[in-house]
């Protein structure tokens, strides 16, 4: 009896699945890929691959750390170019000491930051702002999303704190995107062009609200590195990678120690195991 119930249930599921599969296949045979999907497939470009400092030997990502000079340059690009629209609200000014700025420099950066920290006027109790301190996070650029959209043609500039981790292959993606603007190809179908947006084949929909930002010599690097578009793109992507995962170096160091320990321990445990079992057949 039990057996036959089981056959019946199985047969029911299979029957419904066959019906579903049949109708889906029929629908798929009739369906055509929409023009926008075709265009996206044809023109979208994959990430350019950069040999980042943290890829380390052979690109395994085991030993490589951050290059503080590069992070400082990247911060300069963020400060001079990106910070007008993109906030960095999960990073604190004090964190900049981790990429090689000294306390006085960071303090200067904090007090000079264009956007001030919201506060309360001690005399009147009204909303006010005050200069940032070491302990403050980078102040948000816009008070809220509506303000951000209003100032940016209804586009929302995302926060940069986690951008490198919230996009697949984030570091390469950021570099590819920021350096990847191109003129619209002559063959690009007119109907798929989007007014008011900018063509960037590295963006998932090909049309991005952000206009091209970088031009050669846009910033003047403190360490004298020539500020080419490529250089700035790499530097700012590196800085944002650090901003998203500031504990990466600590993590890798702890990992190397842990794995060396575990390999020795496992080796010892294996020898001990074989010793214990030496007189047993199994």
């Amino acid at each position: 009896m039990f057996r036959f119930i089981s056959y019946a249930i199985g047969a029911t599921f299979i029957f419904v699945l066959i019906l579903a599969g049949y109708t889906d296949l029929k629908a798929a045979a009739d369906a055509e890929t929409s023009e926008s999907d075709q265009v996206r497939e044809e023109y979208h470009k994959y990430n350019k691959s950069v040999d980042w400092s943290w890829n380390g030997n052979m690109g395994l990502g085991v030993f490589g750390g951050f290059d503080n000079q590069q992070l400082q340059r990247g911060f300069q690009v963020y400060k001079d170019v990106c910070s007008g629209c993109h906030s960095l609200k999960r990073v604190a000014f004090r964190n900049l000491q981790e990429i090689g700025f000294n306390e006085a420099e960071v303090k200067q950066i904090a007090t000079d930051w264009v956007v001030e920290v919201p506060s309360i006027n001690p005399d009147t109790g009204e909303a006010d702002t005050r200069p940032a301190t070491l302990a403050d996070k980078f102040p948000e650029v816009y008070p809220n999303e509506i303000a951000a959209r209003a100032a940016n043609n209804n586009a929302l500039p995302p926060d940069m704190s986690l951008i490198a981790k919230s996009r697949p292959d984030g570091s390469n993606y950021l570099y590819s995107l920021i350096t990847g603007y191109e003129p619209v190809p002559a063959s690009f179908p007119e109907s798929q062009k989007q007014e008011g947006l900018n063509y960037n084949p590295h963006f998932h929909s090909l049309w991005i609200a952000m206009p091209p930002q970088l031009s050669d010599g846009l910033v003047e690097y403190a360490d004298g590195t020539p500020a080419t578009i490529d250089q700035m793109g790499k530097d700012v992507a590196a800085f944002l990678t650090w901003a998203a995962e500031p504990k990466m170096e600590e993590r890798k160091q702890a990992g190397i120690g842990t794995i060396i320990f575990l390999l020795i321990f496992t080796g010892l445990a294996y020898i001990a195991y074989r010793r214990v079992w030496a007189d047993q057949k199994h």
Partner: peptide, 9 residues
Amino acid sequence: AKDLFGVGV
């Protein structure tokens, strides 16, 4: 002994 080795792996 065998489990200790397994735990290590």
